[in-house]
Design a protein around this nucleic acid. Structure first.
Length: 564
RNA sequence: GUUCCGGUAGCUCAGUUGGAUAGAGCAUUCGCCUUCUAAGCGAACGGUCAGGGGUUCGAAUCCCUUCCGGAACGCCA
């Protein structure tokens, strides 16, 4: 139920000569303080229009208004404050949630069109760090949000399985590596080799030459190089998949950078055909000065292609394969320049879908104030963070709820939930300095707090043996505590819409926290299971809470244990 | 140097399109488990919204400017 709409209609009935219906709706606001009512109409704009004192207008208009939804009105200076009939609104909102269940909040925006989402994209032979977590969980949450508003998301893991680093890796492996050690501990060993390479290459430039040579061989299909590359890739993927399983995130495509090796020549031809390429110090560039950007380097002086060439090839491939309405790239904000270039090159080439490409940037994670860098060995390993979180959750369960069945499973859901939720609860673009204490928290505005809240609600439903409700019943609630919940439930579709429009999962996370806070206040002050004339309506409210919290968490990629 | 992000309570952050008295969580102190899970609830403490100008009936929010922090800026991805 959209009560703002109904209030707007009531006002419009009196003011149709001065303002359009949606103008009125835009003016309506949600007061910050509950003693200012549920909806407020400020009359400043109207005062300007009618050249009258705003307080006077409020008085005159307010006197004439009426609607079955309005319990009472209060005119405070230039504001008309509306207090809604809690019973009527509660019933309508709960009927809606009960009828729609987890589909509550679904919107018809995308017409089912495809939206490829470039996300996660770890580099082969390197460990997954907290930085990859961000791309992975933000991408997954956006995929869920897009699905909820009727798009068809395509989760693409654009693996970093190509590039000059493989030349370095092969060089390092041949010099200092062993098959046994890699088999034993693939990522750790490959990382050790990679770090060692960089350390020694600082004093010995011949190593870089050798690495370049090996990469060249790899590009030319040299057997030994290809064999090593394939092996590194396989071992790495096995390790990654374990983490993805724990996060419960899966991909529709794992076509990585290597997949586009044979598709870049076409890009170069296309750009050349449009006379966009110019030679510069032996390299081929697209000049982007008119976009205020530095030139895009399409081909190096040695003939090798670059990152942007590959991403252009990928963009064309995705358009051809998915005919997308939008294409998202969930990649750190430090690559904003790259995506600006990508769009600018496509625009220069006259590609009409260039503006459907959206870079979804996110903030940097640092450790002790320093940027994480695999090369320097400065990493926060994702797997270790998840392990620690899960272990702490298990300790918490042993302490607070030792009789809980399936402790390990719940501990994993709670621990991983804490980490994922932490990454999604704030604005994507915020940077943060990593500390395990902050990430693995179970109290306050955290994932486990939301999970716990829902588990308490589930427990009430179980005791009442209430699992389903008839949406045609009336569910009239009158107390202040349920009213706060009702208002938050009512906002849900708009919350989903805002999350979609802003590509911002944190809007969902904030809604989950607000809802959980409102429910915990209700829980502390209102008895549900006691005999009371509103008991059935209260149970329905509890049911609605469990549904919407679960849906919020599902969108974020967090599990909802029924007990914890 | 240029461009882009950011600066709100001790710490981490909210603050739809500009609206009434700037809000949470953590931390600290103090209350609440014979009643639906205390991973909870309540209370106290805590602020020149970085500084200065401007636009407006009204600015944390928009514009200009200064300061501070971070990032990016052709042969890595």
């Amino acid at each position: 139920m959209d009560y703002k709409q109904i209030i707007a209609e009531a006002i419009h009935a009196e003011l149709h000569e001065s303002l359009e219906l949606n103008e009125i709706k835009l003016l309506l606001e949600k007061p910050k303080h509950s003693d200012h009512g549920d909806v407020a109409f400020p009359t400043f704009q109207l005062a300007k229009l009618l050249r009258k004192n705003p307080a006077q207008i409020a008085q005159e208009v307010g006197d004439k208004l009426s609607s079955p939804l309005i319990e009472r009105m209060q005119i405070v200076g230039p504001y008309i404050n509306f207090f809604l009939k809690k019973e009527t609104v509660s019933s309508a909102v709960l009927q809606e949630v009960i009828a729609e269940k987890n589909n509550f909040g679904n919107l018809k925006i995308g017409n089912g069109t495809n939206v490829p989402i470039d996300m996660s994209s770890p580099n082969i032979a390197k460990p997954m760090s907290m930085g990859h977590l961000r791309s992975t969980v933000i991408g997954n949450a956006l995929a869920n949000i897009f699905e909820k508003v009727d798009f068809t998301p395509v989760r693409i893991n654009h693996l970093g399985d190509w590039g000059t680093q493989f030349g370095k890796l092969i060089t390092a492996y041949k010099k200092w590596g062993s098959k046994e050690k890699v088999k034993e501990n693939p990522i750790e060993e490959l990382l050790r080799l990679y770090v060692k390479f960089h350390e020694l290459a600082e004093d010995d430039p011949s190593l870089d030459d050798e690495a370049r040579l090996w990469f060249k061989k790899l590009e030319e299909g040299n057997e030994e190089a290809t064999e090593l590359w394939t092996w590194f890739r396989e071992e790495s993927l096995n390790v990654f998949n374990k983490v993805y399983d724990r996060l419960n995130i899966h991909f529709d495509s794992t076509k990585g950078e290597a997949f586009y090796n044979d598709k870049m020549e076409e890009v170069v031809k296309l750009l050349d055909g449009k006379h966009l390429l110019s030679a510069n110090q032996g390299a081929h560039i697209v000049d982007l000065e008119k976009y205020g950007l530095n030139p895009a380097l399409i081909m190096k002086s040695d003939g090798a292609t670059l990152y942007i060439t590959r991403d252009l090839a990928a963009a064309f491939y995705r358009k051809k394969t998915y005919d997308f309405s939008q294409a998202l790239y969930v990649v750190g904000q430090e690559q904003a320049n790259h995506f600006n270039q990508l769009k600018a090159v496509l625009t220069e080439a006259g590609i009409e879908w260039a503006n459907d490409i959206h870079h979804i940037p996110f903030g940097l994670i640092t450790k002790d104030g320093e940027k994480l860098s695999t090369r320097k060995g400065k990493v926060v390993l994702l797997e270790e963070v998840l392990n620690e979180a899960s272990a702490q959750a298990l300790r918490q369960i042993e302490d607070k709820n030792p009789d809980l069945p399936n402790k390990e499973i719940v501990a994993e859901q709670v621990g991983v939930g804490a980490v994922v939720f932490h990454d999604l609860r704030n604005d994507r673009l915020n940077s943060f300095d990593f500390t395990i204490e902050e990430v693995v928290q179970f109290e306050g505005e955290t994932g486990p707090y939301v999970q716990y809240t829902r588990a308490r609600a589930m427990s009430i439903l179980k005791k009442a043996e209430a699992s389903d409700f008839d949406a045609s019943n009336a569910f009239e609630l009158s107390d202040e505590y349920s009213w706060e919940i009702i208002k938050l439930l009512q906002e849900y579709p708009n919350t989903v819409k805002r999350a979609y429009e802003n590509y911002e999962p944190s809007i969902i996370a904030k809604h989950a926290v607000s809802l959980a806070q409102a429910f915990n206040k209700f829980y502390a002050n209102v008895r549900v299971l006691d005999d009371h004339e509103e008991k059935e309506a209260r149970l329905a409210l509890v049911f609605a809470i469990t549904e919407v919290l679960k849906e919020d968490l599902r969108i974020l990629g967090v599990q909802s244990p029924d007990k914890m």
